[in-house]
């Protein structure tokens, strides 16, 4: 778990910072961004294994960020966060290339499990590319 690098993107600062601290306490290296643009700027110098991305953000929406990330950094797996009860938007994100989605308020154990699965998929994909 110590090698996992995560970028957490959410405009709710208190949520992002507290969740980042909790993930950090569990040995996961976490960086935070509070807008879609900030996340894209950060990706120019920092490449995480997994991006945890809120869908409903002011300015650049999570869907737009997802599209750009899939185009520019196809190796980064994206887990979407949605505050909406309907799973339709999360499912639509998955059809656009997100690894999976979670609904807020989330259980940290579920998030860690999904991050782990996403890291494993990334490793498998990379191993496949090398062959």
């Amino acid at each position: 778990m110590n090698d996992w690098k995560v970028l957490l993107v959410d405009d709710e600062r208190d949520f992002a910072l507290t969740l980042a601290e909790r993930l950090g306490m569990r040995g996961i290296k976490v960086n935070t961004a509070f807008s879609g643009q900030e996340a894209l700027d950060l990706l120019e110098t920092y490449q995480p294994d997994v991006m945890v991305l809120d869908l409903m953000m002011p300015g650049m929406s999570g869907s737009t960020v997802l599209r750009k990330v899939r185009g520019l950094y196809p190796n980064i797996e994206v887990i979407l966060l949605t505050g909406l009860s309907s799973t339709a938007e999360g499912a639509s994100g998955v059809s656009q290339g997100a690894f999976d989605f979670l609904t807020k308020p989330l259980q940290i154990e579920n998030l860690i499990e999904k991050i782990g699965l996403a890291v494993r998929k990334r490793s498998a994909d990379e191993a496949g590319q090398e062959k």
Partner: peptide, 21 residues
């Protein structure tokens, strides 16, 4: 507003979770 409230609940859960950690 339900969307906002879900964010409120998420912050409460993470803050309480951090305190528990």
């Amino acid at each position: 507003m339900t969307h906002e409230m879900k964010n409120v609940l998420a912050i409460i859960r993470e803050s309480s979770g951090l305190a528990e950690d």
